[in-house]
Every structure is written in structure tokens, then in C-alpha cells.
């Protein structure tokens, strides 16, 4: 496994109900992979397992060659994960979160803080960086967490529904920021249920249905859609239907 992140045969069940059934997924460096799926398809569960926040029932996840659960500290140091509800400490500001992150991850303070400020300006929360996160709105907290995740300069970046709650300008800015991180060699996985925004950013798209990957489209396959979001949506829906039919058998 040479990929920055490689998952093999990941299984997870809740109350005997299978959520993930043998997921194999490699994230290549310098690519943005979009993970699509219906609500409840298991996207967030998969992202949490890939980040080390949840432990799989079976299977293994390696980050830069370090297995999550066995070499947890080394593996988790290589990735950043921004969840839908990021766990920000309410009485600390985003800047103070960044200072802690710098200390714990051994990052260069000047570079990291400069990146944080640049990202924050792009997402229009520059003035909110010094304020305790508890006084920020939900959307601003999400943006602050995204800025921190992007500034962490990790090899792997996992984002769960990052466009939720963002206005149009911020969504466009986030797209540019993600593309910039990709160009730096970061392997990015974005969970989303919006096919149109996925097509705009993805180098690769995978569709999760009934706990399995029902569709895997590389850059060439995505280019074939020629920015036709409707056609892409139809392909995704067809894959979900196939997954549902297979799961129901």
C-alpha cells in the first residue's frame, strides 16, 4: 500500500445492521476524491473510520504506511479530518486552536498561521479568528474548522459535507482552497450528497450504496460527462439503485 491512505476490507455494523461491507479505498496523492451516497449510506461512518475516530469491526486502514489502531499517533499525525460538527473548544478562539495544533503536530508556526489567515480571509472569517468559537454562528464554526484542517498541512485531508451551511462565495473559495491543497500533493476525500458540486471539483468520484462502493469514476470517466451535471446525477442515481437492488437481494 503506497497510497497516503489505503483502506482494505473495512466492515462496520451498528446493532447487527451492516453499515459498511468490505470497503476497499485508496486515496492517491494530489487528487480530490468525492464520496457520494444517499443520506444514511454510511459516508460519515466511513470517514470517521478513515480518520481513526471510529474503529472498524474488521479490516485495516493505513495512513502513510502506519496502521490506524496500532500506530495511531503516527497515522493520525498524517491526516486532518473536518467533521460536519467539528469539535471546537468553545472558550478558545480559532487562533488558539491553531497554536495548540502547531504545538502538538510540530508544525512551523509562521507558515501555519499565515496559511490559516489566508484561508480565513478567503472564507471571509478573518476577523472571527480571534473570537471564542462559542460566539460564532454554525457556519462560521464550520469555516473555522475548515481553515484549521487546511492549515494542518497533512498528507491526507478528510472532509465530511464541507459545503453544508456555506454561502455561494464561500463555497467557491473553498473549492479553490481544496484545489490548491491538491496541487501541493494532498490526498483529499470529500463526502457529499450534492452531485453537481462534486463534479466541479472531483478528480475521482466513488458512490457508496448499501455499505459498498457501487461506482468508481476516475478523472477520464468524469471528464466524459463534459460538465453535464444532470448526466452525472443520473449515473450516480443508477449506481445507487444498483446498490439498493443488490443489497435487497
Amino acid at each position: 500500500m503506497n497510497a497516503p491512505l489505503a483502506a482494505r476490507q473495512v466492515h462496520k455494523s451498528w446493532l447487527d445492521q451492516p453499515i459498511l461491507r468490505g470497503i476497499d479505498l485508496d486515496l492517491a496523492p494530489g487528487t480530490i476524491t468525492v464520496l457520494l451516497g444517499a443520506n444514511g449510506a454510511g459516508k460519515s461512518t466511513l470517514i470517521r473510520i478513515l480518520s481513526g475516530e471510529l474503529i472498524a469491526d474488521r479490516g485495516a486502514v493505513k495512513v502513510d504506511g502506519h496502521t490506524l489502531g496500532e500506530q495511531d499517533d503516527k497515522a493520525r499525525a498524517k491526516l486532518a479530518h473536518v467533521a460536519q460538527s467539528p469539535p471546537l473548544a468553545p472558550f478558545l478562539s480559532a487562533l488558539e486552536h491553531a497554536e495548540a495544533m502547531i504545538g502538538w503536530r510540530g508544525l512551523d508556526p509562521d507558515t501555519t498561521l499565515a496559511r490559516l489567515r489566508t484561508h480565513a480571509e478567503a472564507l471571509q472569517i478573518g476577523r472571527a479568528l480571534a473570537r471564542p468559537t462559542r460566539v460564532l454562528s454554525g457556519g462560521m464554526r464550520q469555516k473555522a474548522a475548515l481553515c484549521l484542517g487546511l492549515a494542518a498541512q497533512t498528507q491526507v485531508l478528510l472532509l465530511d459535507e464541507p459545503y453544508t451551511g456555506l454561502d455561494i462565495r464561500s463555497a467557491l473559495a473553498l473549492r479553490q482552497l481544496l484545489q490548491a491543497r491538491r496541487d501541493e500533493g494532498c490526498a483529499i476525500l470529500v463526502a457529499s450528497h450534492l452531485a453537481e458540486s462534486a463534479l466541479a471539483i472531483a478528480d475521482r468520484a466513488v458512490v457508496l450504496s448499501r455499505g459498498q462502493l457501487a461506482l468508481d469514476l476516475d478523472a477520464a470517466a468524469l471528464a466524459a460527462f463534459n460538465d453535464d451535471a444532470r448526466a452525472f446525477e443520473r449515473a450516480v442515481l443508477a449506481a445507487m439503485d444498483r446498490g439498493d437492488a443488490a443489497g435487497g437481494e
Binding site: 469539535p87 471546537l88 473548544a89 495544533m101
Partner: peptide, 10 residues
């Protein structure tokens, strides 16, 4: 909440 934030930050 502090534990969660700290784990998230590394």
C-alpha cells in the same frame, strides 16, 4: 469537549 477538541487537533 476539551478532550474531543484536543484529539482532533493532534
Amino acid at each position: 469537549e476539551l478532550s474531543a477538541a484536543a484529539a482532533w487537533l493532534g
